[in-house]
Design a binder for these strands. Structure first.
Lengths: 190, 190
DNA sequence: ATTCCCATGTAACTTGTTACATGATTAA
DNA sequence: TTAATCATGTAACAAGTTACATGGGAAT
């Protein structure tokens, strides 16, 4: 992509909460953050080195067992400052969502195209599954009332992801329903 | 990104509708497709050459005025086949949305953080502006009933984008409202 | 004349993905 | 003992952005 190094701020942001290893950071993308960003360890490890060279983070070696060395990274004052700057600067770009399914839809010219129904049905299944997964996450992490104001950011993005998937599923279901209506109307006109 | 060459299929898809120049294709990303994908001309022109070498598209030179040569590209049978393959193959990856604002929110730990309100307010303004723009597009292009089944894909993705922005705005407004409620409750407890 | 849009390209760089590579620890 | 997970790295490549570069056509 080459969009202005968001991963850098994600790393700084995560280290602002706890000290973490590169491995921990990579894992974070399989959890909540994965809803809104992806990164592999092959991208993370080199960036950690660059951030350390730039003086934004440092690490301490920690032994796990006898031989296995972990690099536990933590935020420096300079890193904290850059994180804060990023958080405070206005966010004015609304990025395009890069949704492959919607892209395909765009090229379906005719509302009666026979492949439309299986496509929509499959997507509905996928998004409903995702929705169910997110709702499970929500109950697992925020069933206690107190925690909602504690890890507020966490809570908000989960809520947002849930509403997004709900909306997506509704749109798909509604489009499928209208297809059925049109098909019935067409039969009546025979 | 290096995700599997979606731009290729967008180009094939667009050429499946009309013959177009590279310039026209670049312009398409400022219109509807821009809701779901971005691409600059610097990425498009080289790819057009590669697609032509691969035999998926061809071009004819056309003169605009006396000297200005346009390359008008069109889809070959091979290109049509690959486009159709892509459209028919299942779409199972639900890509993360890479939303910078949500990323920032994630790192706001405390529900009473003073920067939360200005952040939310600004985003609400941005998304409402986008929503208004999309709704205008919708009336402009699909006010006639007939056209809805004609350029069905067009219509669907616009509808989806509108519902997405509506949902996003609702979420922001709701979060702002809850903030206000909490603030009032806090005052009563003094 | 000058500005805006049409039209096409290349170069340098950053970001992101996939694959290669290695080895330790833990729990079944 | 073996499979899963922890842990860290590099290499090759693909995708995407920003900037550089050039010139014609149309309308004011």
């Amino acid at each position: 992509m080459a969009q202005k190094n968001k991963l850098k701020y994600i790393i700084l942001g995560l280290l602002g909460e706890h000290d973490l290893t590169g491995y921990d950071i990579a894992k974070a993308f399989t959890a909540d953050i994965g809803e809104f960003w992806n990164a592999n360890h092959s991208q993370i490890y080199p960036l950690l080195k660059r951030l350390e060279t730039a003086g934004l983070i440092t690490h301490q070696l920690q032994l796990s067992g006898e031989k296995l060395e972990k690099k536990v990274y933590s935020l420096t004052a300079a890193g904290q400052a850059q994180l804060s700057d990023w958080l405070h600067e206005p966010t004015t770009e609304l990025t395009a969502s890069k949704d492959e399914f919607v892209l395909k839809l765009y090229f379906v010219q005719n509302a009666d195209d026979p492949m439309l129904q299986p496509m929509l049905t499959e997507q509905l299944r996928l998004h409903q599954a995702k929705l169910a997964h997110l709702q499970k996450q929500m109950t697992r992490k925020f069933s206690a009332v107190a925690s909602k104001t504690d890890n507020y950011g966490h809570f908000l993005i989960l809520q947002h992801a849930i509403e997004r998937e709900q909306g997506y599923s509704d749109w798909l279901a509604q489009t499928l329903a209208q297809k059925t209506l049109r098909a019935a109307a067409a039969r009546n006109h025979l």
